[in-house]
């Protein structure tokens, strides 16, 4: 980009805008670190009564630590399964799929998790998985698989279909097709999909709270409990703990691909979709 000669908006305007964005992006971290450092936040104190690391000690121990570990295991399982299943579905869909099927794939993805969970709870209860880790895994996989299917189908190019035919003509089976065509074609998007689906599960609250019925404890569930109980320092520590994997994943992706568009939660899924569409063969 060489258009630096004449800047639009003037130096002051640009600086104000960039400063605002910097504040918008960095201030939440500062606030969270500040709040998590101490306890005793009586009005109108700006500094805590006691500066201690109690919130951090509690964040890694007891029910909080257990919830974090269990949530990490769940998000790993959802990420791996959703990516594989989405890849399989995307191959089937891009051969036969139409715009209407695309709309159907988008429906679970765009529906509010809290509303989807309210409607799916009865289905989960009928198959006896409501209030269990399996139930939460299944409903999160619905979202993860839809995302992965849309993401991978969006980057399927005509050339890959021809290469697949070539492999089959040369005597290759399904395994050879996956080894020589499918995986190389989707290699660039695999980390994005894995990270994004893992984050979706790691940060989910709507599906876990309704389908889990309070029996499935993840870190997000603990965070909302702490907010409701008024545990400011504890909630701030949990928020930061919740953010760390997302931050590491995003920085890794950014290091690997300087223009990766990925964020956490709902818009993150959409960012991933956009990235899939923008990626040129």
């Amino acid at each position: 980009m060489n258009s630096a000669g004449r800047a639009a908006g003037g130096v002051v305007g640009r600086s104000v805008l960039l400063l605002n964005v910097a504040v918008l992006c960095v201030l939440p971290y500062v606030v969270l670190v500040w709040l998590s450092c101490g306890s005793g936040w009586e009005w109108p104190r700006l500094v805590p009564l006691r500066v201690d690391g109690v919130a951090w000690q509690r964040a890694f121990s007891g029910s909080n630590g257990r919830a974090a570990l269990q949530g990490a295991g769940l998000s790993l399982a959802v990420a791996v399964c959703s990516t594989v299943w989405g890849l399989l579905i995307s191959r089937c869909w891009s051969e036969t799929g139409s715009g209407r099927v695309r709309g159907l794939l988008y429906l679970p993805l765009l529906t509010s998790p809290a509303i989807a969970a309210g409607c799916l709870f009865d289905l989960m209860a009928r198959i006896h998985v409501a209030g269990s880790w399996l139930g939460v895994f299944l409903v999160q996989s619905v979202y993860g698989t839809s995302f992965a299917a849309v993401l991978f189908a969006g980057v399927r190019e005509p050339g890959s279909w021809r290469r697949e035919q070539l492999v089959r003509t040369l005597g290759g089976g399904d395994v050879a097709v996956w080894r020589h065509v499918v995986l190389p074609d989707s290699r660039g998007l695999l980390p994005l999909c894995l990270f994004q689906t893992a984050l979706m599960s790691w940060l989910d609250y709507g599906l876990t709270t309704v389908v889990g019925g309070g029996r499935v404890q993840t870190l997000t569930m603990r965070l909302f409990s702490q907010i409701r109980e008024g545990g400011v320092s504890q909630a701030a520590a949990s928020s930061l703990l919740l953010t760390v994997p997302a931050l590491v994943a995003l920085l890794l992706l950014r290091w690997r691909d300087g223009w990766a568009v990925m964020t956490t939660g709902g818009p993150g899924l959409m960012g991933g979709l956009q990235r899939g569409r923008e990626r040129k063969p």
Partner: peptide, 30 residues
């Protein structure tokens, strides 16, 4: 429009990545 110099653009990109990592629940709490 504002970040049209590559150095600024890279810095803004890094800042935005920091912001992008914040979960909705953490942002709501903040």
């Amino acid at each position: 429009v504002a970040a049209d110099h590559w150095r600024v653009e890279r810095g803004v990109g890094l800042l935005l990545t920091l912001g992008a990592a914040l979960p909705v629940s953490a942002v709501a709490f903040v």
